[in-house]
Write a protein that binds this DNA or RNA. Structure first.
Length: 126
RNA sequence: AGCGAAUGGCGGGUGAUCGCCGGCGGGCAACCGUUGGAGGAAAGUCCGAACACCACAAGGCAGCAUGCCGCGUAGAACAUGCGGGGACCGGGGGCGAAAGUCCACGGUCACGGAAAGUGUCACAGAAAACAAACCGCCGGGGGCAACUCCGGUAAGGGUGAAAAGGCGAGGUAAAAGCUCACCGCUCGGGGCGUAAGCUCCGGGGCACGAAAAACCCCAUGCGGUGCAAGACAGAACAGGGAGUUGGGCCGCCUGCCCGUUGUCUCCCGGGUUAUCGUCGCACCGGCUGCAAGGCUGGCUCGGCCCUGGUCCCUUCGGGGGCUUGGGUCGUGAGAUAAAUGGUCAUCCGGCCGUGGCAACACGGCUCGACAAAAUUCGGCUUAUAGCCAUCCGCUAAUA
RNA sequence: GGCGGAGUAGCCAAGUGGCUAAGGCACGGCCCUGCAAAGGCCGCAUCACCGGUUCGAUUCCGGUCUCCGCCU
C-alpha cells in the first residue's frame, strides 16, 4: 500500500468540520486535539491551524508536520473514520518526534489504529 | 589587526528516499510518465498605478493629500531616485588674549505663509503681545528722620520655555534706535545662477516673540469602490409581511440617468449549493521527438560587461546617474480548509564539552536569522543569525 | 484577501495641549462595632509601546504591537 495522501481524502467543507465537532468525540493533547467521528463510509481527515497557533510560517510548519505523520500512519487506520486535528500553540515548539509520539498516544486512545499493541509507525517502513 | 557606525550584497550547499500542488501527454478509470513549484522583504497595507464596475464620470461646495529648487524614471504615477540651496547639531582645523569668526567634513530636517484673519501661550512673574513698571535709577514737593506723594525712565535685578532687535560708542538728571558704526530685519537696484538662493550698493527705521504635527490662508492634485472588483454557464423553487415613496451617479447641492403593476431596506419562509462551479488568473513562436518533453529564438523583468551619447560632481587623477546599440548570465509559481514538505546522510558555518602551548582532533546541539505568495506591477516602512565588499571614526603595533 | 475602528487601575469607564488624570465596582489598610454588615478616611495608573512637533503630549503627527467589526 503506497503512502499517498491525496486531496480526495481531506475534509473540505465547513459543514463536514462542524459535523465532526458536534457528532464526534474529542481527545485533547498537549500539542493538538483530535476530533473523531466513526462509522463513516470513507476515511477522511482535516486539519485546523488557526491564527491563535502563530504566524503564517509557524502555522504552515505545524500543518505540514501533522499532515505528514497522518500520512505515515494511514495504512494502520481503522477504515471509515473522520479525523480532525486542531493544532495548539505549544505545537510550534514541538519536534516532529514529539508530535508523532502524541499522535500515536491519542490515536490509540481514540481507537483509530487497528494494531492495538503495535509498534509506533516509523517514518521509514521498508 | 581589533572594535564601532553607515551603505550595498548573499541569505547554507549536495545527495538519497517517501510525499503534496499546478501544467501537459497517455489511459474508460485506478494510475503512469514528464515538467514547473516562495521572498528580499512574499510582511505591514503606508503611497502610486494597471485592471474592473458604478452613467460617457458633469458643475460647485465640503473633504483629503502634497508643500525649498532643478532634473530624471520614454508604459505611467508616486510621499520614489540623483543633484543643488538653506537651517540646525556634532567633533575637527585656521585666525584671535578672549568673546568670536571662517573653513571643509559627517549627520539630521513634515523646509510654503505667523506684516489676511480668529484663537492659544498653564504656573511663576509688575508685565505674555495695540506692551507694561515689582525691586531699582533719576528729578521735584513734603518730613528732623525712617519714609511718603507726583513725574521721568527701562541700563541693571528678579520670574519664566520665551521679556519686545544684539553689541559697542555717543548722549542724558537718569535713560531710551534718541543718534551713530557693525550685525540682524526689510524695501529698491546691480551682478552671478535655469531656479531655490548667494553676493554687492543704496534707502528705511526698530515695527515684525513662539507655535500652522491650533483653526486657517495660498498653490497644486484628487469622482467613488475595490479581484470578496467584476463577467459567465447551468440547475432548483413559493412566496409572504413591514417600512420607504423613490433609487442610482457621491458626503451635500445643482444637474442628469433609471424607474414609478417598480426600486431600496429589514424580517419570516422556501430552493439551489455560488459560505465551495468556470473565467478574471499568469508570455509567444521555430526545429526535433510517437506524445508530454528536449533544444532554440523573441518578449517581460532583473543583474554584469563593452561602445557611443547626455547630465551632474570634481582635489582635474577621476567618480556617479540615465540611456541608443551590442554581448553575456539568469528569469516566467500560481493554491482556494488553501501546494512548494517530512526524514536521513554528508559538507560549510556557529555554540558547548573533553584533550592539547597551539594548529587541531573527538563527542554533543529540539544550532542555521527574519519571514512564506493569494489579481499584477513601481516605491516606502518595518523585521533580519551569520558572512562578504566599500567608506569613515577610535584604539594598538610596526616603519 | 480588502476596508474600517479601538487600546486610560483587576473590571466598567469620563476626560482634555498645563496644578495631584474624574467617578463607580472590586482589592488592601485604618476608624467605627462585643463581632460583622453598612458608613467614613486613605491607598492602588509608565494613559498599549517607540520616536517626533511643542516650554510642556494621555491629547497633535508618524511608526510598531494587540484586539474587535464589516465586505462574496
Amino acid at each position: 500500500m503506497p503512502l499517498t495522501f491525496p486531496k480526495s481524502i481531506r475534509l473540505h467543507y465547513s459543514s463536514e468540520f462542524l459535523r465532526v465537532k458536534t457528532e464526534g468525540r474529542a481527545f485533547g493533547g498537549r500539542y493538538f486535539t483530535l476530533g473523531v467521528l466513526k462509522d463513516r463510509e470513507a476515511t477522511r481527515t482535516g486539519l485546523i491551524t488557526s491564527k491563535r497557533v502563530g504566524i503564517a510560517v509557524e502555522r504552515n510548519r505545524v500543518r505540514r508536520r501533522l499532515r505528514e505523520l497522518m500520512r505515515l500512519s494511514l495504512p494502520e487506520w481503522t477504515p471509515g473514520v473522520w479525523v480532525v486535528a486542531i493544532a495548539r500553540r505549544a505545537a510550534v515548539k514541538a519536534s516532529f518526534t514529539q508530535l508523532q509520539g502524541e499522535w500515536t498516544h491519542l490515536a490509540r486512545r481514540a481507537g483509530i489504529l487497528q494494531k492495538t499493541g503495535g509498534e509506533t509507525s516509523q517514518d521509514r517502513p521498508s
